[in-house]
Design a protein around this nucleic acid. Structure first.
Length: 420
RNA sequence: GGAGAGGUGACCGAGUUGGUUGAAGGUGUGCGCCUGCUAAGCGUAUGUAGGAGAAAUCUUACCGAGGGUUCGAAUCCCUCCCUCUCCGCCA
């Protein structure tokens, strides 16, 4: 959420940012509502002040045995007027809040403007692995090595769901454990494991609601949502809190299943593991002081890259252009890993700085050195999502006979075997 | 699921015959003083958010959340959430 005062004072900037993000909001209307709200608030405050003042005198008058019937009658009239103003005010507030929640975050100043095609290449690591035969795609490898049983998963849950079996299940779990251990030991993250069913307020705090309600799985009975990423539970874990200065920065790592309805995205890229309704992910989340958040963003990209380097997978890093940025993000890097069978780069990590956008919504603050209360900056990034990492891994480490070699760092998690 | 108790400021804890209580007292913390010494004492300050104002300052809201009664509610009523204890249920 943006600060209303900021919008008031930076109208053009905000307007531009919204259009750069391909979002639509009636900013004029918001300004108008804000103005009316403040006028009404002022009126209300004055009336209430009078009421408070007179009410305070009544006990004294009574003690002095004076007749209060007239003054009480007068106050009754005022009281009714106040009730009406208050009703208008709270309607106005609600309308304004709803509108404010619909305004996206403002892209950071160095974010390229434009749609996806303006995403900016930052760097790459390693190179595309060369094969002296035609490398198989992950679907063939999965079938040959019996790593997943997608048909049966579809039977029990429907299309877009997959089931890891046997060696495939072990490999996926090895990936998760390796990534968690790696971040904990090498990057000093603290592990947390939180609920994956969360309430409406939590979903609103990180910006998934109200905009993306259709993309979420929802349990009607209890009005709970399945998280699309651990970011939601971990970030909101500190909602409505004021963190002491010494507590910052905070860095958390959390494994969780992620649920996305992916409504309307049938067709392309839906085969196999590329786009599924439920997948596993290891997520990094940070709460930091505002002045260092962009340094931390770079650090987190490196943290995610370290995983791919340890796995020996070629990748590239890109900066997302404004039109490709998510609703809540101010700046996002994507990491795309090379899948030699599919012959393309697959997005395995998205690392974003939300500045104080989420902190405002969820009210996550801290006390700075001077004791003043400020909003923290929140950041998060995948480190990493397993399905596409899995694809790149088996495609990169396949052998001509169809078997799959195990990268060194994963071997301890797979009985020290070298071949899966 | 049933019965009971309860949710107050950084923390502990008063306040339920409704009325200068944003909230006693204590702890903690900041500042000052005093004290010749690891400590103690004294004084003083110490919530968050919004609005008006150039500023000083004034003002409003907030005692789990939301409604209601009332001239006036932390205090009364209703709904919901959460915590604790006992019973039941499931393992």
């Amino acid at each position: 959420m943006l600060d209303m005062k900021f919008i008031r004072e930076n109208y053009e900037l905000v307007k531009k940012a919204i259009s750069n993000k391909n979002e639509k909001t009636d900013l004029k209307k918001i300004l108008e509502l804000d103005k009316r709200k403040r006028e009404l608030q002022f009126k209300f405050d004055k009336m209430r002040a009078e009421q408070n003042n007179v009410s305070k005198q009544i006990p004294g008058l009574k003690k002095a045995k004076k007749d209060t019937t007239e003054i009480v009658a007068q106050m009754k009239v005022i009281s009714n007027k106040i009730k009406n103003v208050l009703a208008d005010l709270s309607n106005l507030n609600e309308e304004l809040d709803t509108k404010l929640l619909g305004i996206p975050n403002i892209p950071y100043k160095d974010v390229p403007i434009g749609d996806e095609s303006n995403n900016k290449f930052v760097r790459e690591w390693g190179e595309k692995k060369q094969f002296n035969y035609n490398p198989a795609g992950h679907l063939d490898l999965i079938e040959k090595n019996k790593l997943l049983d997608i048909k049966r998963a579809t039977k029990i849950s429907g299309s877009g769901f997959v089931g890891y079996i046997g060696k495939g299940a072990r490999l996926e779990r090895a990936l998760i454990n390796f990534m968690l251990d790696f971040h904990i030991k090498k990057h000093a993250y603290e592990e947390v494991s939180l609920p994956i069913l969360v309430n409406r307020q939590t979903m609103t705090g990180t910006g998934q609601l109200p905009k993306l309600e259709d993309d979420m799985y929802h349990v009607n009975e209890d009005d709970l949502f399945l998280v699309p990423t651990a970011e939601v539970s971990v970030t909101n874990f500190y909602a409505k809190e004021i963190l002491p200065y010494e507590k910052l920065p905070q860095k958390f790592i959390s494994y969780s299943p992620c649920f996305r309805r992916e409504a309307g995205s049938y067709g392309k890229e839906t085969k196999g593991l590329q786009r599924i309704h439920q997948f596993n992910k290891v997520e990094m989340v940070r709460f930091v002081k505002p002045e260092i958040s962009y340094n931390i963003l770079e650090e987190m990209v490196n943290d995610a890259e370290d995983i791919l380097q340890a796995l020996g997978l070629h990748y590239r890093v890109v900066t997302l252009a404004t039109g490709d940025l998510s609703f809540a993000s101010a700046k996002t890097y994507d990491i795309e890993v090379w899948a030699p069978g599919a012959e393309k780069y697959l997005e395995v990590s998205s690392i974003s700085n939300f500045e104080d956008f989420q902190a405002r919504r969820a009210s996550i603050r801290f006390r700075n050195e001077n004791g003043k209360v400020e909003f923290v900056h929140t950041l998060n990034g995948s480190g990493l999502a397993t399905p596409r990492t899995f694809i790149a891994l088996i495609e990169t480490y396949q052998n001509e006979n169809g078997s799959i070699s195990i990268p060194k760092v994963l071997q301890p998690y797979l009985s020290n075997k070298k071949i899966l």
